[in-house]
Amino acid sequence: MRDVAIVSYAQTPYVRSERHRNEVEMLMPIIDEVVTKSGITRQDIGFTCSGSTDYLAGQCFSFVMAVDAVGAWPPIKESHVEMDGAWALYEAWIKIQCGEVDSALIFSFGRSSMGETAETLTLQTDPYTMAPLGPDAISMAALQARSGLDAGLYSERDLAEVAARNRRNALTNPEAQLAGEFDVDALLEAPYRVSPLRDHDCPPVTDGAAAMVIATADVARNASSKPVWIRGIDHRLDCHQLGSRDLTRSPSTELAGQKAGVGTGKIDIAELHAPFTHQEIILKNALGLDDDVRINPSGGALAANPMMSAGLARIGEASRQIAGGAAERAVAHATSGPCLQQNLVCVLEG
């Protein structure tokens, strides 16, 4: 294995609706920032990989235009995943492990505000047995939430406390969208959105982008005063039929966490991509995190949920905690698909 480090990370401010900048205009400042901070010249970055989806842009091959934000002349080695940027990071990490390149630029972007996100996400369900019934993302999450309530894994109050803590943490994150002090008793008096979920259990709709540069040890040590090492990274998948899964657990997160080496040392902080409150509890259990692990100091996906970037943002936010000296060892997680169907786990160290 080659040692690989995150040398720089940047994200746009996360907002409800980015009406005046297109995707390229959102990306240009943060790509400029991560390349400059990395200390590696644009021409010397070996590989570029992005994560986005045509279903948000409403246009096929929409990612090609985003290459304008990178600059593709002289020609670059470039790839794209129709997934969260965390999986673009995974592809770039593999590319470095294969010995083909020594550094990579990763970026991701999406403007959820252009459609009805909960309904757009219906389109990733089984097109024959599920999608024709229109299961929206919130209703599917609600099916999972009730499974855990019925099993006694958590209470509605536990879920409200998850929401309040994440949005309180977000008060110190200037790029978060939804931050504030919320009273748990007041939250529990609100009506259900889709029972058993209330508004506070659901993520905000967010536009935004993220970018990162990674590099091998030699390049990283020359480029960065504080490289953050990727000690393990793995992703796994559960069945696409909700009714074939035990929704109270996340077996794919458990397996990815074992493969990434979460349990081989003390974890100081965790950035978990849990768009819905109950999912943070499922993920905490799946990763075997102790109660003293600080979860989502950034506010997590409940404070800002930029589609296609919220997973990469978890890894970026965890790297910021380590680079800033607030943590020595962190776990970051990204998810994709309904009810935590696919999960990526990344272990970072200073």
Binding site: E116, A118, E119, T122, P132, L133, G134, D136, S139, M140, A142, L143, Q144, A145, R146, S147, D150, Y192, V194, S195, P196, L197, G243, L247
Partner: peptide, 15 residues
């Protein structure tokens, strides 16, 4: 019924 979610305000693409 193993689990359920109550939709008080159906969306346009709900059955």
């Amino acid at each position: 019924v193993k689990s359920w979610a109550w939709v008080g305000q159906p969306r346009k693409n709900h059955p």
